[in-house]
């Protein structure tokens, strides 16, 4: 039976379990080491959660094709929603194991609901309460992801990127600067534009494309909109390519995934480019392998219909 992914603001149990699960995966160490992945400094085991941070960075540094530095194996191209769907599902499966709850569904943050509030009310949304994602700050000081130097079990950022985009080992609290880089979140009018935007994607299959994917990703306007705007609005650790460091990353992407699902529900489960498209689009075509690190790969075709695995409590976006 399909599990149901809930709205985090409407489900106190999901709220508590998500935070608990993240902290469990933060403290679950695999035998993979920083050294084995070429991350400078002493060799340390990497936790299951932190491997998602590294995986995101790897995908982002995988240029498709290598002759340019915009479209990569997870962003700025057709594969954006599919790759993140793959990543989210991997996190969900790991959370289920850590929580010993095979029915656990990853929660989403319906940011467009907050986006319709005034800028000051957006910053006071319940998502930033101590019983949800915690507050803003550098580092944050409230909630389940506060760093306490004296408590080795407490949440901390262990791997981030420096200004020249190289991974490094750190040991510090999570940073947010809510509302500093952008004054408002995306709104309901943006999500309804997204649902009406067809086709799925268009040449040149990058940040200048028309179509749904590029609008959802957020490149269609300047300043950026939709998914990108959420990263910028939260700020701090949500800005570098190591943005999965902030657990709110997955809540943002779960809502992005929900919008994609709503779009497919309305416009059909279509995906382009097909397999006969140019080799320059390798990594983005229907049956190309998605960049993987912690599991076998999958393909966009395999994730287009997940309704037997999970559904959302509502597709009203």
């Amino acid at each position: 039976m399909a599990i149901i992914r809930p709205n985090i603001l409407k489900d106190a149990v999901a709220r508590q379990k998500y935070a608990q699960g993240v902290n469990l995966l933060k403290n679950e160490f695999t035998t993979s080491t920083t050294q084995s992945l070429g991350i400078p400094g002493p060799s340390n085991p990497i936790s299951t959660y932190d491997l998602f941070v590294v995986w995101h960075q790897v995908a982002m540094m995988t240029m498709t094709p290598t002759s340019q530095n915009e479209r990569n194996a997870a962003h700025s191209g057709p594969v954006f929603p599919a790759w993140h769907r793959f990543m989210l599902r991997q996190l969900e499966l790991n959370l289920q194991r850590a929580l010993q709850d095979p029915a656990f569904g990853l929660p989403y943050w319906d940011w467009a609901a907050d986006g319709d509030l005034t800028p000051s009310k957006q910053k006071k949304s319940k998502i930033w309460a101590a019983d949800c994602m915690g507050n803003t700050g550098s580092p944050i000081s409230k909630g389940p992801f506060v760093f306490k130097a004296s408590n080795p079990q407490s949440f901390r950022v262990r791997i981030d990127a420096d200004s020249s985009n190289q991974l490094r080992q750190v040991n510090r609290g999570l940073r947010r600067a809510i509302g500093a880089g952008a004054t408002t979140l995306p709104r309901r009018s943006d999500t309804s534009t997204a649902l009406k935007t067809t086709p799925y994607d268009l040449p040149p299959w990058d940040r200048s494309s028309g179509g749904f994917r590029n609008f959802l990703e957020g490149w269609a306007q300047n300043p950026v909109v939709m998914h990108n705007r959420v990263h910028v609005w939260v700020g701090g650790d949500m800005l570098p390519p190591t943005s999965p460091n902030d657990p709110v990353f997955f809540l943002n992407h779960c809502n992005v995934d929900r919008i994609w699902e709503a779009w497919m529900n309305k416009n059909g489960r279509t995906y382009v480019p097909l397999d006969n498209a140019s080799i320059d689009l390798k990594g983005h075509r229907l049956h190309d392998d998605l960049s993987s690190l912690i599991s076998p790969p999958t393909q966009p075709a395999a994730v287009l219909n997940m309704t037997a695995t999970y559904t959302y409590d509502t597709l009203l976006v």
């Binding site: 695999t30 035998t31 993979s32 084995s36 491997l51 790991n94 912690i294 599991s295 076998p296």
Partner: peptide, 16 residues
């Protein structure tokens, strides 16, 4: 099956 139910061991295997 590996894709369905990851474990720390399966994760380390694929990372390697």
């Amino acid at each position: 099956k590996d894709l369905e139910r990851p474990t720390p061991e399966s994760i380390a295997h694929y990372v390697q």
